[in-house]
Design a protein around this nucleic acid. Structure first.
Lengths: 247, 247
DNA sequence: TTTTATGGTTGACTTGGATCAAGCGAACGC
DNA sequence: GCGTTCGCTTGATCCAAGTCAACCATAAAA
C-alpha cells in the first residue's frame, strides 16, 4: 500500500494523498517553499513510500547509500556502533525530518536508522534530487539549509554532552522534544516517549539509571509528571531554569 | 615544523599562486575532482582572500552569513557560547577544510571561528557557489559530500563525548590530528599543537587538568613524548589500543 | 488466569574526573 | 636582565554519575 508505482499516479486517490503536494508535512519537510508546479516535479521524484515496522531498520551502517528518506509518520532513532559493542544514539527523528544525510559523504550509510514505532517513509533517490535541485533553486537552497541545520543540531548535542550535567541534559532533551511536537501540531505539554530510558541515556551520554533518577527528581520537584513513557510537562520555566543553572 | 609562513608572496605571482587552480590544497578542498576549465570558473568566484591573525575572529556567532571559507593556511577553532558563559569547542580546522557551513541554516553564523595561528582564508560567496554548483555537477556533488562529511565527523564527536573515557578521548584526538597532518604531507608522528590544554579539554568534554594528566600518563607509558605543545607519537598502536579498551 | 520478558525504579557503594590549590617554565614587555 | 603573565603540571580532596543489585510494573504469551 505504501509502495506506489509512479505510473498509477493519475488513477488512485491514495497515491494523490501521499504526494508531497498534498502532504501536511510539506512546510516542515523538503518541499518547503516550493511553488505548486515545483511540488509536482518533486512528487515525480519521491516515488517510493515504504512502511517500516517498529524495531526494523530503515538502513544499516555500511549499506550502499542511494537515497535520503523523509519521515511521513512515525519515529526513528539513528545510532553508531563501535567494534567493541559500545553504541551511541546520534538522534531521534520524527515526521517531516530527513534521514540518511550522513551517507552522502562516503556513498555508504554510516549509522543505523531504526523505527521506534510503526512508521512510513518517502525515499528520495539522491542523484535525482541533485538533478532536480539544479533546476529548482528553492529546492537546492532549502536542501542546503536542511543539511546545515543538521550540523547546527549536532553542535547543540556536543554542547550538551561536553558541558552539561545530567539534569540539564535531560531538561534540554524534554524541551527539545516538546518544541518539536508543538511544531507538528501536538501538545507541547503532554506526550509519549517512543524510546526507552536506555536509548535516552545513550543519546545524552548517561546511564539508564541516571536518566530514571533525573525523571524522578523532576517529578518530585513538580516540573513534570512521569508515568513510564507518558510525560506531562507541568512547569516549562522550571525546566528551562534547570538548564542555565551554573556550569 | 608544520607552519608554512605565507609571508612573501610577490605581487605579480601572488594572484596566480592563490588561485584554486594552482593551490596545492585543491585535492583536499572544495575544488576536488574538477576539470581545469571548471577550476577556472571556481577561481572567479573565490575572489576574496584574507589574512586572519592569531586570536582574531574570522566570524562571530550572530553575524549575517554570506560566505563559506576555505582555509588556505593556518589553524582555527570553532566554538559555541552559552549565555551563562559555558563554551564548547566544536572543532579544530586546518588547511583545506571549510568553515561556516553552520551559517547556511539560518543565514546567520551560529558559532565563532577563531584563528589559533596566523592564517589565510579564501571567502566563497555562498549564493554564487549555489549558482555555480547548478552548472558544475561535480562541484555540486562534492559540496554535498563535504557537508555530509561534517555531519559524520560530528557523529564521531558525539560518540567520543557520549561513550569514551578521558584517555580514550585524548587518544582518539591525537590519532585524528596525526591522520589529518599526514593527509597534508606533514609528519604523522611529530607536530605542534596549536591549541591550549583548555581548548582541547573543551572539545573533548574534559577539564584542562584532566587533559594534562592524560598527556603525562601517555608519556609515562611510552605512547608519546610531550613537551608543552610539542608532541611526538612513539607508539601509534599503543594509542589505538587505548581506544578500544572496554566501555 | 498465571507466566515470562522487558523496561523502569530505587538503594548502597564505588570511582573517574572535577575542583581547589600550589608551584613551575617559557615567552614577552619593559 | 627581570618581572609579569599565561599556560602547564601535579597533588589532595570531593562529588556526580556509574556500577551492582534488588525489586516493581506492564504487556505479551501461555
Amino acid at each position: 500500500m505504501a509502495q506506489t508505482h509512479p505510473l498509477n499516479q493519475e488513477i488512485s486517490l491514495s497515491v494523490i494523498k501521499t504526494a508531497c503536494s498534498n502532504c501536511n508535512l510539506r512546510e516542515l519537510c523538503l518541499p518547503f517553499g516550493l511553488s505548486l508546479e515545483e511540488l509536482e516535479r518533486l512528487d515525480d521524484l519521491v516515488s517510493t513510500r515504504r512502511r517500516i515496522k517498529r524495531g526494523d531498520h530503515l538502513y544499516r551502517a555500511g549499506e550502499v547509500f542511494d537515497a535520503i528518506y523523509a519521515i511521513r509518520s512515525g519515529f526513528f532513532k539513528t545510532d553508531v556502533l563501535l567494534e567493541d559493542g559500545r553504541d551511541q544514539v546520534t538522534g531521534f527523528q520524527m515526521a517531516g525530518e530527513l534521514l540518511g544525510l550522513d551517507g552522502i559523504s562516503t556513498e555508504h550509510h554510516t549509522c543505523n536508522a531504526i523505527a521506534l514505532e510503526d512508521s512510513e517513509i518517502c525515499a528520495i533517490p539522491f542523484s535525482r534530487l541533485e538533478v532536480l535541485s539544479r533546476e529548482i533553486h528553492t529546492l537546492q537552497h532549502h536542501f542546503h539549509k536542511v543539511m546545515s541545520r543538521e550540523i547546527v543540531r549536532d553542535h547543540g548535542v556536543m554542547m550538551l554532552l561536553g558541558t552539561m550535567r545530567a539534569e540539564e541534559r535531560l531538561a534540554a532533551f524534554l524541551l527539545n522534544l516538546s518544541q518539536r511536537f508543538t511544531a507538528r501540531g501536538f501538545s507541547h505539554a503532554e506526550f509519549y516517549l517512543r524510546m526507552t530510558r536506555e536509548e535516552i541515556g545513550s543519546y545524552l551520554g548517561l546511564k539508564l539509571e541516571t536518566v530514571s533518577r533525573a525523571f524522578s527528581r523532576f517529578q518530585e520537584e513538580g516540573h513534570i509528571a512521569v508515568q513510564q513513557k507518558h510525560i506531562r510537562i507541568l512547569n516549562v520555566n522550571g525546566l528551562k531554569a534547570l538548564m542555565n543553572h551554573r556550569a
